[in-house]
């Protein structure tokens, strides 16, 4: 049963991740008054991309080709550590949340250098922004997780999320809300969503993430899109773990709650993107530092005896 649960969790993640992007797009279309593409459009896109050939820049070398592969591999490895609702993670050990965070650093590292491998000034620009923002997002994320870890007394994602319960909310509400907001900001930033980044426009100058992959095409681009989808899913799952810790005892019920939350999250992202404008680039750091500050306050609430 346990192994089955693990397997289902992994498969669910791998299979359903692109769906979130579909939901977001659908929501945005709704708000724009369009019918919009099907929620399964991302799958069609991926399928199409995997069918294509590729065009490589003469400047680029093997790093450019390796980037998407290693990125996807690290996202998939991170997926091994992530529990969802009642479903256990494939691997769980003390401190795996650190590994989880650092696997994203690995992903980022290769994404950035493969962008630089093209020698394109636009991709260099995106890469520069990416490393700057992520340097700020990473402490916010880790400190937020540290607050939750301190609260639950566990250092494994699986244990943290299984020991958090809806009944904790009355007592730990402020902490969880703070961590939730902070992680939410990190979620938006890491997944290049408004207000940090705007995946819609294709004005390269305004973008961070998308601009880094301008030169990718075919299966490579497919992998990148799929990686992005996984990232969205996994970070969404973290939020789900913190904000809707439903533990009824019934695995399926818990999982459904989490999945519903993920869908809701996608809708919410769509709503935000339809109703808000992108922040000025120079204001993004303030947002991220604000997130870190929220995490610190949460930490103080947990450890500082203020709880």
């Amino acid at each position: 049963m346990l192994i089955l649960g693990k397997l289902i969790n992994l498969l669910l993640c791998l299979a359903a991740a692109p769906l979130l992007g579909g939901i977001i797009n659908r929501t945005k279309a709704f708000f724009a008054g369009r019918k919009g593409p099907s929620v399964f459009q991302p799958y069609y896109d991926l399928f199409k991309l995997f069918q294509k050939g590729a065009v490589y820049s003469q400047t680029a070398g093997w790093v450019f080709r390796a980037g998407p592969v290693i990125g996807l591999a690290s996202a998939a490895a991170a997926a091994l550590l992530m529990p969802l609702g009642g479903l256990p993670a494939v691997l769980a050990f003390e401190g795996d949340l650190i590994v989880f965070v650092y696997l994203f650093a690995l992903l980022r590292f290769f994404l950035v250098i493969s962008a630089l491998d093209t020698g394109s000034s636009f991709e260099g620009m995106g890469a520069a922004r990416e490393v700057t923002f992520s340097a700020l997002a990473e402490p916010a994320f880790l400190l937020g997780l540290a607050a939750v870890a301190k609260y639950t007394g566990h250092t494994s994602l699986s244990q943290i999320f299984s020991s958090l319960d809806i009944t904790d909310w009355p007592a730990a509400g402020p902490t969880l809300v703070l961590v939730g907001i902070s992680t939410g900001i990190v979620f938006l930033s890491e997944n290049c969503r408004i207000p940090v980044d705007d995946p819609n426009t294709h004005l390269e100058l305004t973008m961070i993430h998308e601009v880094m992959v301008l030169d990718n095409g075919g299966p490579d681009f497919g992998m990148i899109l799929y990686t992005a989808a996984l990232k969205l899913w996994l970070l969404g799952a973290v939020l789900a773990g913190i904000l809707v810790p439903v533990h009824t005892g019934n695995v399926w019920l818990d999982t459904t709650a989490a999945l519903l939350f993920l869908a809701l999250l996608a809708v919410l992202v769509g709503v935000v993107e339809s109703s808000m404008a992108r922040l000025r680039l120079l204001h993004v750091p303030s947002l991220l530092i604000g997130a870190a500050a929220l995490s610190i306050v949460a930490l103080m609430l947990v450890c500082g005896g203020l709880l």
Binding site: Y56, S57, Q58, A60, S120, F122, L214
Partner: peptide
């Protein structure tokens, strides 16, 4: 699989 200049 083609080779071209970097798309700029």
């Amino acid at each position: 699989v083609e080779s071209a200049v970097t798309w700029d």
